[in-house]
Write a protein that binds this DNA or RNA. Structure first.
Length: 553
RNA sequence: UGCCCGAUAGUAUAAUGGUAGUACGACAGAUUUUGGUUCUGUUUGUCUUGGUUCGAAUCCAGGUCGGGCAACCA
């Protein structure tokens, strides 16, 4: 029984349209510019656009808004396609605004013939000064009243490559005194002698966003063109162009982009982090990019769940990253295979366990999913436990090992700490313990009650692994809201590389596997991992109730 | 100074003139061979001032606050 979820404002609009018969089915599109990698904010838009046509009759296209050849690359196209697929969505058509360059050019000619566009020879400085300000009207350019014939001639020559970059532009002729700055004769075509990733050198004039996006929507019969709030003022121009061109009227709807604290979601800023080597690349596991999250170990399910939970609205927002972490923990708790890995080890010698002997102990692969079965762990006289799991002078409510105390070793025996061995510097280097042979997991008849259970590995068979522990990329909630450059607020401790000692079964790890290192967190193999030098990424820690308890004091 | 968008617990999001809910977080407790998971409980909210109405988070008016608008970017 599916839970009733209330409709977001877009679903309400669509249901109304469907009920009224305005549309039989809907068409949406996800329209990235291939000038960077997709991030978690885009995931929200992807889930929205594709989710809508999963819920209602219709389909969603993937359309690349590739109208600015100087910033766009095929590498980005490929990464975007890969990310959308990975998130679990299928587009109906793979489309490019550049597919419409011929049509768009014809539309421009039409506008000129209608007396609604003109070629302007002004420099960008001149145009800016004539544009006015939000409170003062602009003034007309001296080229504004050129004849249709002259405009046609100049525009064709622009297309033919007769003029250098920036020499002339084509502008829509609307109203230089318009209250909406975007309606003050916006530039619709500019000259760029640049190689385009798809059309090559065919064109040296390229349409601006406003002259490409709405028309592309129209050509594709998009019914609901969903974008973010910063495009609200563009809607007037969007509608104006469609109406003057007398083409299919698609409609634009805006929602607030999703912001997440302790990170940035702006392709421009993410590009800077990559270019200036603050991170190792677009897929650095600390990046909020889809590829970064993927490498970090996030699952598509968890990201979709997150997007659903944060919802869609029109107000400014700053989503707490703890919700993202909740979503991935919830999913990983169900699917991750449990492993025991000791990070900062201290040796434990079980003095009453026979020397040179050992045994295999069975443990569950995932207590949340019995179908994953059990595996064997090797146990012997010498094991490794976490240094943190021993304290010589423990505080109250410390459930772990301390002189004289008893703990259970997970899936093994209860041990008692008898002796603390120190070096000359007074540091604890080894613990001597005794075990209770009748306390074996599953057949415990010792009657001993312990409060703590520790993870451990067999000293002689543990294998070393590298583990990369990630923390938030920035030290402040909103780096873009702080004084100075946002990069000053990078968290210097966002990456820590540590060594761990893992149970031998870890050798069979596959790239797709998700692990829970018991009592530590969730991990996955990094792309740089090698068979003889395993590297793990920490996706997210487990919730740590003890750390919380300690913070209180 | 103009125009546009918005304002509900710490965060996000519902309630569409009729009991202000849900999730995350926080806090407390129960269970637990992971201080995990699970379960239970608690806490905190309608920006403000008026108006309409039997009744307003919702409708109206004024104000306040936040965001956006002057790229040959998208």
């Amino acid at each position: 029984m599916a839970e009733e979820r209330s409709l977001n404002f877009l679903e309400e609009i669509i249901e109304k349209h469907l009920e009224e018969g305005k549309y039989q089915h809907i068409v949406t599109r996800f329209p990235p510019e291939p000038n960077g990698y997709l991030h978690i904010g885009h995931a929200s838009s992807i889930c929205l656009n594709f989710g809508l046509t999963k819920k209602y009759p219709g389909y969603t296209n993937l359309r690349f808004d590739d109208t600015n050849p100087v910033t766009e690359e095929t590498e980005y196209v490929e990464s975007i396609k890969n990310d959308v697929k990975w998130l679990g969505f299928e587009w109906k058509h793979e489309l490019y605004a550049s597919d419409y360059f011929d049509t768009l050019y014809e539309y421009a000619i039409k506008l000129i013939n209608l007396g609604l566009a003109y070629v302007d020879d002004s420099t960008s400085e001149e145009m800016a000064s004539l544009k006015g300000t939000p409170t003062e009207p602009g003034k007309p350019s001296k080229y504004r009243d050129r004849s249709i014939e002259e405009n046609l001639d100049l525009f064709v020559r622009m297309k033919n490559g007769e003029f250098p970059d920036g020499a002339r532009v084509l502008r829509a002729k609307i109203d230089m005194a318009h209250i909406n700055m975007l309606m003050r004769d916006p530039i619709i075509y500019r000259i760029k002698h640049a190689h385009h990733h798809r059309t090559g050198d065919k064109w040296c004039i390229y349409p601006m966003y406003d002259f490409a996006h709405g028309q592309s929507d129209s050509i594709e019969n998009v019914t609901h063109s969903i974008c973010t709030l910063e495009f609200v003022p563009h809607r007037e121009l969007y509608d104006w162009l469609i109406e003057k061109l007398e083409i299919y009227h698609s409609h634009q709807y805006e929602f607030a982009r999703r912001n997440i604290n302790y990170t940035v979601t702006s392709k421009r800023k993410l590009l800077q982090l990559v270019n200036e080597n603050h991170v190792s690349g677009w897929d650095d596991p600390r990046m909020p990019t889809i590829s970064g999250l993927r490498r970090r170990g996030y699952t598509p399910d968890s990201i979709r769940d997150f997007c659903e939970r944060i919802g869609i609205a029109k107000r400014e927002n700053m989503i707490d990253v703890s919700l993202l972490e909740f979503c991935i923990r919830e999913h990983l708790n169900k699917i991750a295979l449990r492993k025991m890995v000791v990070f900062d080890p201290i040796k434990v010698v079980i003095t009453n366990y026979p020397e040179g002997e050992g045994e295999l102990l069975s443990t569950e692969n995932n207590p949340e999913d019995p179908s994953t079965g059990h595996r064997d762990l090797q146990f012997s006289r010498e094991i490794l436990i976490e240094k943190d799991d021993f304290m010589e002078n423990p505080p109250k409510k410390y459930f772990r090992l301390s002189p004289g105390s008893k703990v259970r070793l997970k899936s093994a025996y209860i041990i008692q700490c008898d002796e603390v061995v120190k070096n000359e510097a007074g540091e604890v280097v080894e613990l001597h313990c005794s075990y209770f042979a009748n306390s074996k997991s599953g057949e415990d008849v010792s009657g001993i009650k312990v409060q703590g259970t520790l993870h451990w590995v067999n000293a002689s068979s543990a294998i070393p692994v590298e583990v990369r522990e990630y923390d938030r990329l920035f030290r402040v909630e909103d780096p873009t809201d702080e004084a100075g450059d946002f990069k000053e607020y990078l968290n210097p401790d966002s990456l820590k590389v540590v060594k761990g000692y893992a149970e031998p079964s870890i050798k069979h790890a596959n790239a797709a596997d998700r692990f829970q290192f018991l009592r530590k967190g969730y991990y996955c193999l990094d792309t740089e991992s090698k068979e003889d030098a395993l590297v793990f990424n920490r996706t997210v820690t487990l919730k740590d109730g003890w750390a919380k308890e300690q913070k209180k004091n």
